[in-house]
Amino acid sequence: MYVWLFQSLTVIITVAFILTQTPIARALFNLESSVKKQIYLGLFFGFISMLGTLLGVQTNDAIANIRDVGAITGGLFGGPIVGLIAGIMGGMHRAYLGGFTANSCALATILNGIFAGLLYTRKKGKYFSPLLGFTFGILAESFHMLLVLLISPPFNKALTLIKTVSGPMISANAVGVGLFLLVIKVSFMEKEIVSAITAEKVLKITEKTLPILSKGLTPETADETVKVILENTNLDAVGITDTEKILAFRGIGSYHHKPLSPILTISTKKALSSGKIILMKNEFDIGCSVKDCPLMSGIVVPLKDSEGNVFGALKLYRKERNTMTLFDVEMAKGLANILSLQVELNKLETEKKMKTLF
């Protein structure tokens, strides 16, 4: 049983790791604290909890499982609401499957999710270390065993079951909680590393573009800026537009994305009209009107003034599909913010000089 449960645990942790690497999960984990975020996180960990039951092993009219990993991790990571939702999902699913321990196991999962969430509030939102998660997992799963023993008649049958499953379930669930928290921690560490590298890269480019954009955003200054960005990154193409035409473009595809020509891509037009960042995974997302355009993935970030009005766009591209990394996205956002600020400062300086003249 030890082997079976720990094999199931490897599946759970693998699934968890893969899910935490998806853009949707990353965005979910990085949302500001809100009821909406807690509901989504509850559903996420509830799915993990249900999966823990499905990967369990039948024994003595019961199921030895790692269901509590989802509910406990959800509570420790997201708080009481997350733990409650995950616990209810995992618990109701277990109750539906039946067996003489169905109700006690369902109740234990729900309560463990709530207890973990309450512990989260005591930590005031700070992340739990894998070791603390492991320790709490042992205590929570021991409570689970006690609850089964107390409210799952007949007592002798429950006692026989507990003697068989307590060791494997307590150890597997505790290790699972610790490993899951470690996966989440690694995910956040990666984001912090990316942010640090991005800040350094953006600062380097900013130092070189500051004197250029102090002259304002023109086709000439845009071209110099694009050149600096391209030389200091491994991107395949970079462009800057105003709201109607291309101001500058360098790299692959420059033979038809020519300066002062109309904007050719649907994605850029969409970013300019909506004011939202557009991430393109393939040539269809980019939507270039020229056949055989070599641009295969990219990101378009609107440039905005201090009042939020869009006056242009920064465009970063790669020649292969679905190759824009988290670093590329963060860098694009950072560069767009800096470029917008530099252009806005030039505008204010120009207005100041005009007032002085008159």
Rank of each mutant, 00 (worst) to 15 (best):
S142G: 10
P153Q: 04
I151M: 08
L150G: 00
L131Q: 09
L131P: 00
S129F: 07
S142T: 15
P130R: 06
T135V: 15
S142V: 13
G133K: 13
F155G: 02
P153K: 05
L150D: 05
T135P: 00
L139I: 15
V148L: 15
T135H: 07
F155V: 10
F136C: 11
L159V: 04
F155T: 10
L159K: 08
T135M: 15
L150M: 15
F143M: 11
L147I: 06
G133D: 08
G137S: 03
F128H: 00
G133C: 09
E141A: 02
L132F: 12
K126T: 10
K157L: 10
T135K: 14
A158K: 07
V148P: 01
A158S: 12
T135D: 01
P130D: 01
L131K: 09
F134Q: 08
P153T: 01
T160G: 12
L139D: 02
L131F: 15
S152G: 01
A140S: 11
T135Q: 12
L161R: 00
L150P: 01
G133N: 07
Y127L: 13
G137I: 09
L131R: 08
L159R: 07
L147V: 11
S152Y: 05
V148E: 15
G137L: 05
L139E: 03
L161S: 00
S142A: 14
K126M: 09
N156L: 13
A140K: 03
I162M: 05
L150Y: 13
S142D: 01
S152R: 08
P130M: 08
L161T: 00
M145L: 02
F136H: 08
F134M: 11
A140R: 03
I138H: 07
L150A: 13
L147K: 01
K157D: 10
K126E: 15
I151P: 03
F155C: 04
P154N: 02
L150N: 08
S152K: 06
F128N: 00
L149F: 14
L146N: 05
M145F: 04
